[in-house]
Design a protein around this nucleic acid. Structure first.
Length: 435
RNA sequence: GCACGGAUGUCAGAGUGGCUAUGAGCGGGACUGCAGAUCCUGAGACCGGAGUUCGAAUCUCCGUCCGUGCUCCA
């Protein structure tokens, strides 16, 4: 919701140049970054929000709220800006972090002396900052300047939600001081509490066990990763852990996710293809104790579907939900590969498709649309180029194999490998793909 | 130092006082000329110590280690 790029699970661009470093054209920079952000989020199948407010369009509101806080005795003007006076609402202190006012004082040590010189108290935070050279500025009753960071979020969120809203997200690092400040500002301004009912703070994405940071050089953007794996695989990897936990982004995690995703996708495709008739017959009643194998399987799947819903209802326990989906995949594969009457198989396939679309696709967002899932991978132009050659070699190899000339067959497989093709023998014959 | 989280098999990672998931990896089996893929199956863990309890991965306390925040910027 109202998060900065820093709190996104993975930073979207490399560019994080501050406005001071540019020769005035900071608006174009902002537009470029926002465009890149949308592209990355779309690729990851993240639904667009209803509104994407931009703080530069809310400066008037920020000024108005700041003035109101001054009028109500919660803020004061100093020589270098306007500050929120934290002691004016001490009961609100530490709501998110459990820190007492005294604890913060000792933690801050001597480091506050040379900053925010106009503050009456080191705990106070800026609502408005007087202009500094080369910075973009706006006019205000307290002279030209720019808003403080925290007031931006308050102005935008209250404009959309009036005085309270249900869920406020953000990175774990923003709990203090940013979100605490939002509580002070919002509740003191409206006189209504709580301004936020539920705070959702996500853990960080680390790289190989280390915090992702530019100085360490271990910076992976979404785009970097999408050159290596499918967007659905990255999404699968990101929901591998609970959103509150830190997650370590590395090759092993992506490989793991790729494997699981392929199992899921393979099962989905198999179920889609098993729907041979658009009007399915009635299936047996789901019943774990049923003597009918199909009834029992349906009972199992129903139970896993309930477990899935319970997990997601419990503070978005995505890992638990993924486990349930993989359990469904196993059971569905088993049933589709088992002995079934044609009508039952068709009906079960309809049921399985619906179940996977409801859970893996609609809720978790880790399944592509049907037409994409069913698209033949030969669309790859590199594959089309060598297809005839490969098919010819495969015919030769099949002949050699049926003649039990294993050395000839293996030599052909080596030739194919030299072309960059991997052959896999399956129950229905050899399949090939680019390595 | 203070605050808030966390520590679960080889790895990743859920877990509701009694039964523990899921996936990878590893072992066994089916299918395979071989490899791979697929399917079935097995073994394998709750950081250390104390306490509460008939019973603790789960609750309490102590310890150790790890993460984040505690000045500015966003």
């Amino acid at each position: 919701m109202f998060t900065t790029s820093k709190t996104s699970p993975i930073s979207t661009t490399r560019s994080s140049i501050g406005p001071n470093e540019l020769d005035g054209d900071w608006k174009a920079l902002v537009d470029r970054n926002i465009e890149a952000y949308y592209e990355d989020m779309d690729a990851l199948n993240i639904l667009r929000a209803d509104a994407y407010p931009r703080c530069t369009e809310y400066v008037d509101d920020m000024v108005r709220i700041t003035q109101d806080l001054i009028d109500k005795g919660h803020a004061y003007e100093a020589n270098d800006g306007v500050y929120f006076h934290v002691e004016s609402a001490p009961e609100k202190y530490g709501q998110l972090t459990g820190q007492s006012i005294d604890a913060v004082r000792s933690g801050a040590g001597g480091r506050v002396d040379d900053t925010g010189s106009g503050k009456r108290d080191h705990k106070d935070f800026a609502l408005w900052k007087a202009a500094k050279p080369d910075e973009p500025t706006w006019d205000s009753p307290w002279g030209p300047g720019r808003p403080g960071w925290h007031i931006e979020c308050t102005a935008m969120s209250l404009d959309h939600f009036e005085k309270e809203f249900d869920i406020h997200g953000g990175g774990h690092d923003l709990r203090f001081p940013h979100h605490e400040a939002e509580i002070f500002q919002g509740e003191c301004h409206t006189g209504h509490a709580p301004v936020v009912h539920h705070w959702l703070h996500n853990g960080f994405v680390n790289i190989d066990g280390e915090k992702m940071s530019k100085s360490l050089g271990n910076f992976w953007t979404v785009r970097d990763i999408l050159t290596k794996v499918d967007a659905m695989v990255l999404r699968f990897a990101l929901i591998n852990a609970h959103y509150r936990s830190p997650i370590d982004m590395n090759e092993a995690l992506l490989n793991d996710a790729e494997r699981n995703y392929n199992r899921l996708l393979g099962c989905y495709v198999e179920a889609l293809k098993a729907r041979t008739d658009p009007s399915p017959v009635a299936l047996p009643h789901p019943d774990l104790a049923s003597p009918l194998p199909l009834g029992k399987s349906l009972g199992l799947l129903e139970k896993m579907g309930e477990g899935f819903a319970r997990a997601m209802d419990d503070d978005f326990n995505s890992r638990e939900a993924v486990a349930k989906v993989l359990g469904m995949v196993r059971e569905i594969t088993k049933v589709l590969n088992g002995a079934l009457e044609a009508a039952d198989r068709n009906a079960f396939a309809h049921y399985a498709v619906e179940l996977l679309e409801e859970t893996a696709a609609r809720v978790l967002g880790v399944l592509p649309p049907q037409e994409v899932a069913l698209a033949e991978p030969e669309d790859d132009p590199r594959k089309a180029e060598i297809a005839d050659q490969v098919e010819a070699l495969l015919v030769e190899r099949a002949e050699a194999r049926s003649a039990k000339q294993w050395d000839v067959a293996d030599r052909i497989r080596d030739e194919l490998q030299a072309l960059g093709v991997v052959v896999t023998d399956t129950a229905t014959g050899p399949e090939w793909d680019l390595a």
